[in-house]
Every structure is written in C-alpha cells, then in structure tokens.
C-alpha cells in the first residue's frame, strides 16, 4: 500500500493537460442569502495546500463544494481534466476529515475504518488485515475494538485518518481537523498528516484558521479574502 500510485492513467487528451485539481469560476450562493461566493484555485497533484482566512469567508464551503456536499450555481471542479460537478460525493476521488464527529459513536475503531473499505461493512479477512495496517500507520496499534468514547480526541482523529487511508482516494480534504486539540497534540497530528501526504502521494487541502498550523506543513498557503 505505501507505494501505491492510485491515480488512473489520464487520457492522452489535448485539453486534459492539467493533472491536479482545478476550481474554475465556481460560484456558490447560500440558501436564502443574497451573497455570492466565488472561488478560483489550482492545486498540483502531490501538493499540500493550506487555506487560511477569517471565519465566515467560505473556507469550509469551498471544501464542501469540492466534496459534493454543496452544489455550486456555476463554474467547474476538475480533477485530472475530468469534471466532478455532477458526481455524487461517493463517486468523487475525495476523502474528507472534519473537525469532529468523523466516527460513528456506536461503532468500534475497526468498524469505523472498515466502512471506508466496504460501505456495508461486509469485510473479508484481507480487509481486516488492511485495517490493522492502517491503524499501525496512524500509530494506534491494537485499538481495533475501542469505541470512539473510549478514545481521546487525538486518537479519534487518527482513526478517522486511518479510514481516509484505506479509502485510497487521491484527494484528502481536511476541515479544521485539529482545532479542538491542544498545541502539542496538534503539532504531532500535523506531522502525521504531512507524513501520510508524502507516503501516499495525496493531493491535500487543509482549511485552518491558525497561521502556525499552515506554516508548519503546507507547501503553499492560500488566503481567502
């Protein structure tokens, strides 16, 4: 798994020249509000970009649009030259990590990760081995059977990251993932993200309101204004 280059070979097409994620003239209007948000952004494959900006500017909205949780009124989201706009969230080459509630409270760590392999949780022994491997990767060896309530905040986010890994999607979206953690833990988690990003060749977008977090790991910082 570590050296897995999962991206499908792009069609040798004259237009599909850009292989990363491009957000082109994307407009969004919040339900019942007059204000229109516009986004334009290009992210290279294997790039780690941090998105900074004051609250209410639409940082999280941008991630929701990319993931397909919200719909734009115009513009395009493309990855490897293919338009994603009309794909459902599960069809997009994307995996997300939220600030909290990433895990289902009544399912064990193993089951929460297993959902990333089979959404109906029908797992083979091979799948289980993969889950164990993912838990090792995030430094939680042996905690398969724990419920989220029996894990610390940091551990919960690690389990969620493990799920992101087993999903093997080329794009990782992080929405204020560690804001609820204290400073030391945050640094540790940021390092883990950076490692996973590098080892798995992920295109990573992280929304944060903390400049120091952005500085710590990002290849590039985008300020939303």
């Amino acid at each position: 798994m570590p050296d897995d280059q999962e991206a499908p070979t792009p069609k040798e097409n004259h237009q599909a020249s850009f292989q990363g994620l491009s957000i082109e003239k994307l407009s969004y209007q919040h339900h019942g509000s007059e204000e229109v948000l516009d986004f334009d952004l290009r992210v290279e494959p294997n790039e780690l970009v941090a998105i900074l900006g004051p609250s209410g500017i639409g940082k999280s909205t941008l991630l929701s649009l990319i993931a397909g949780f919200e719909n734009s009124i115009s513009g395009a989201i493309k990855f490897e030259g293919k338009e994603l706009n009309n794909l459902s969230p599960s069809e997009r080459p994307i995996t997300s990590l939220f600030q909290e509630h990433n895990l289902f409270a009544h399912l064990s760590a193993e089951e929460n990760i297993g959902l990333g392999i089979h959404p109906g949780l029908r797992l083979t022994s091979q799948d289980k081995a993969q889950i164990t491997q993912a838990l090792n990767d995030v430094g939680l060896t042996g905690l398969e059977k724990r419920l989220p309530a029996e894990l610390s905040g940091g551990q919960r986010q690690r389990v969620a990251l493990a799920r992101c890994l087993v999903r093997r999607r080329p794009i990782l979206l992080l929405d204020e993932p560690f804001s609820a953690l204290d400073q030391d833990l945050r640094k540790e988690m940021l390092k883990l993200v950076k490692d996973l990003h590098q080892n798995h060749g992920l295109l990573t977008l992280m929304v944060t309101h903390l400049k120091e977090d952005a500085d710590a790991i990002a290849d590039r910082i985008v300020h939303l204004t």
């Binding site: 949780f69 459902s88 969230p89 599960s90 990433n102 959902l115 109906g120 949780l121």
Partner: peptide, 30 residues
C-alpha cells in the same frame, strides 16, 4: 445526530439500507 454523519455516509457511498443498518437502527435500538 451530528450533520457530519450524513456527509460521511455520503462520501463513503453507504446505501440507504447500509445507513439504516449501521447508523440509524443502532441509535433507534437504544
């Protein structure tokens, strides 16, 4: 239930049946 749950289920591609079996029913059972 937190709204993140529904985003997660959507992203993971869980079907209505999966969601009922794995998310809604365990809650209702309690």
């Amino acid at each position: 239930l937190p709204p993140e749950y529904w985003r997660t289920t959507a992203q993971l591609g869980m079907t209505g049946k999966d969601i009922f079996r794995l998310v809604e029913w365990p809650l209702l059972r309690r």
